[in-house]
Amino acid sequence: MYSIKRHPYFFMSLFAPALFLVGGLLLYPIVNGIWLSFTNASPLRPTTDFVGLGNYVYLFEDPQFWDVLGNTVFICSVSTIFCTVLGLIVALLLDSGIRFVGFFRAAVFQVWVVPWIVIAILWGWLFNDEWGIVNHFLRSIGVVEGQMAWLFETELAPWVVIFAYSWRAVPFVMVIALAALQGIPKEIQEAAEIDGAGYFNRLRHILLPLLQNIVMTAALLEAVRFLQEVTIPLVLTQGGPIGATNVLSLFTYKAAFTEWDFGLAAAAGTFWLVFVIIFAGIYNRVALRKSA
């Protein structure tokens, strides 16, 4: 509609604020952060020197860092799978012709805005080993006897985090999948039904392929958000027990702002960035189908 040639000032004035904000607050910090990863920068030091790959060497030699990576991949991927599958199931159920869809959707969707800090507090109470309702429930159905120290067993604590992440993210996937489902022309489904295709056949051959790109994109967005999330590990588990819930976001934050080791934190952050880029590239090829 407009062209840069005819409306140069309008063009510039539209982009100037974003250029300033995004350039100063996103692009510069990232570029500068990558640079800092090759230095020994720290606000506790008066000068900053170039140290080459020193930070990376230090990081990769640290067995704890590899544990952190393992925890991160485990917690994020399991949470993503959980919330995607559950969100999809809820969306399919809601789209099956029942009434009160709006009500159910609203009820579930409220969960999506429960503040993380609240989840951190609440999960501590739900999974409290003595008085938590989770342990009470498990005891009452006879699965466990006595107490299960959810937050003190290395095998259990990551699951507490995973439950929190998945719970919070199900509504988002549900809403996106539901909107996509409602966007599928009814004729397609009806035609298949009249042809005698059972529900699961239709699901497999018609619905899921149509939903794949949208749901997989939503899943990727959630996975990225889980990577960034730090409230639960920082407030609820503090990375423990024995580092079992120490994830990349917590590790990087602590390196930067409790140890004030900017160089090391920048190296971890840069590694994280590269990891996400590679992962997204592979994901794009494997999980998304090219639009025909």
Partner: peptide
């Protein structure tokens, strides 16, 4: 913009901190 959602927030914070100081 889509990609920047994945920018590690702690990494951004390091430079923002210096900038804000």
């Amino acid at each position: 913009f889509m990609g920047s959602l994945a920018f590690p927030v702690p990494l951004i914070m390091i430079s923002l901190y210096g900038l804000f100081v």
